[in-house]
Design a protein around this nucleic acid. Sequence first.
DNA 1: AGTCATCTTTGACATAGCGCAAACATCGGC
DNA 2: GCCGATGTTTGCGCTATGTCAAAGATGACT
Lengths: 231, 231
Amino acid sequence: MKIDKSLVRSIPLFDRMSDADLDKFLGHAVSRRVPAGEAVFEQGAAATHFFLLLHGRLKVTQVTEDGQQIIVRVVHPGDLFGFAKALQRSDYPGTALAVSESIALRWPTELWPQFVDRNPRLAVTAMQTIGQRLEEAHTRIREMSTQEVERRVAHAVLRLANQAGRKEGSGVRIDFPISRQDIAEMTGTTLHTVSRILSAWEGKGLVEGGRQKLIVLDINGLAALADHVKE
Amino acid sequence: MKIDKSLVRSIPLFDRMSDADLDKFLGHAVSRRVPAGEAVFEQGAAATHFFLLLHGRLKVTQVTEDGQQIIVRVVHPGDLFGFAKALQRSDYPGTALAVSESIALRWPTELWPQFVDRNPRLAVTAMQTIGQRLEEAHTRIREMSTQEVERRVAHAVLRLANQAGRKEGSGVRIDFPISRQDIAEMTGTTLHTVSRILSAWEGKGLVEGGRQKLIVLDINGLAALADHVKE
DNA sequence: AGTCATCTTTGACATAGCGCAAACATCGGC
DNA sequence: GCCGATGTTTGCGCTATGTCAAAGATGACT
């Protein structure tokens, strides 16, 4: 599939790469269209490629031995993902599932070292990316350790609105299909509890819900809920 | 303070470095003795150095806005720590506190790039280290999302026994002073609950407790508790 | 337009584990 | 050898949240 170069250029990681380098980089890439509901790679599979999301939205999930699922993170356009090999893993630690129709570029993991070599900025970006993820993970741990469910959900929704929000009417809509179950798996609770919480918020005019839909009407109100130490 | 070179050699990261390179590396290092209870660096402080723990034990903690503390991880001898700058942060995200008398080497963060340059293995090790930490963080998130407190504590204790266990009599002793409060902060619960759980375990002969002391008597029994899906 | 699968809401109920409080144990210092 | 500081144990009540159950909504497909 032909690669939309201007799309790639719009990604910070590549905006200042020389045209020659970019061509070399993209020369090895394979573009793939992933329909909603399909996996880019599966947990436990051999890490043969690393990826860059150009368009769409993925969720990375892990399943525990006893069958419970959690959402590790959401992949947004411009994000590198699946570079387990760079971290010295031989298999993917999670499953990457398209939640809406997506387009991803793919490179064989063997190329990673030479890309990094040729383009130091990539190494820095990768380090940075992982650093951020580590920080996010710690934030999540901190929240799960110290906050009640409602605040955690508030934080999660705010984060989503930030990363995947699109203005719609008087509010900000989460720009991909997301279920209560998904939110539950991101915050470590059950869909029932999430449903109750969202219903309550809807009653207070903070959000507007719907099937696989979520619109934040009052960002500040939500932020207050998320930050406010209850008294 | 003079650096014990054989101690450094015993760390996997350095065991195969050439003598010349090692000398160059250590030439820039400053060794510091940290008494128990003292901090190597504090959360929020400018990240001026990165470190290597030679001896002792540290806990890295974070404090939330509302004053609650969590233990992010325990640093063992041979671990690199505090390389926030490599991850493009300007300050330390947590506080590193010695829980027993420790010795740490210290380098200015500016040297990081050139060390990595001269010694590619360091870069790989660092990447690997961060990858592991990320994985650990996800494991913890998974546990906190899906398991009850008792299983989480069991996992935490097993991990400690693995990383810091020393045979003692018929059991394995956690080889540094650790309180119920600490365990609580590692597992996202309260010291009360931890105390109850440990008391129960002691009743079953799984562990032996004490002031800032913990000895695992029955690793398998504990592992069963940690893994066994309750029915 | 009807059917089915999926997602959401809501209720009733059970309980794990937290908060509070007080007694108790252990250790290091004087 | 006593004292104060620090850590641990235990009881009790409460409530946030999970579990179980069932009834709506919503949208996709035929």
